[in-house]
Amino acid sequence: MNWWRHVMAMEIRKILAYRSDFWIIFLGQTAVQLVIATALWKSIFETQGTIQMNGFTLPMMTLYYLIVPIGMRMLTGENIGFISREIYDGSFNRYLIYPLSVFQYKAVTYLTYSLFYGVQLILLFSIYQFTMIDVTPTLMTFVHLFEGVALFLISATTYVLMAMLIELLALWADNIWTLVVMLRFFTSFFGGGFIPLAFFPLWAREILVFTPFPYLVSLPVRTVMGQSSSIEITLGIVVLLCWSFFFMGCVALMWNKGQKNYSGVGI
């Protein structure tokens, strides 16, 4: 199992080989999302003539949308199509000849990206703490930040298993791109990535509590903001672990069935 440290180190070297990407994604993407969300919510707050909506003030909402994009990147990693693309072009062969588990390898590479975006989150938090005027009535501290980052890593583990389930459909179907995009959309929507879950109707929230989605995005974001209780965090971890074991079983089942269809491309 010593190889996983080297895989992580190698993935980090790969990321650092394209350092401009790091800054473009970090600054560009975060800034765009922040500007759009702030402008939108500022106008909603002004129209409603209120300073608080469903427990959110405008500065809190701004902070929420500052954390969400990086959190989503931690969750969904870098590699959309990280298995299906390789199944289609045959580069998946490589993992089948090495004496290791292909899924462990893929999970390690995936989580390396998550960890790396976690560094971006810490960086963002530090910039925010040291440069912004503290207008946010939150309990945000470095302890909460690290709790949130750890929670994001657990949720990323659940998400990578969900993604693997979809990606493995490539062993049967010629194109699974739509399903991968749908998974991202549903995760973001039902996880509170587009609109905080507090704005969802009660019946929807009562249903969602049994799904992994609220624990994938909303819970870690609120944890970073210092708004989750330890009971909520513990419950979230338990739910995520239960779903992870379920998805792990499904992935194993699908792989056992599907690997017989793998052609490694070409005859």
Binding site: H6, M10, R13, K14, A17, Y18, G90, S91, R94
Partner: peptide, 21 residues
């Protein structure tokens, strides 16, 4: 089909293979 990692120098791939094997 390339099996070594394209974005890295070969020595980096060899170090990983040393661990894998």
């Amino acid at each position: 089909k390339a099996q070594v990692w394209w974005d890295l120098p070969a020595l980096d791939s060899f170090i990983l293979l040393k661990e894998i094997y």
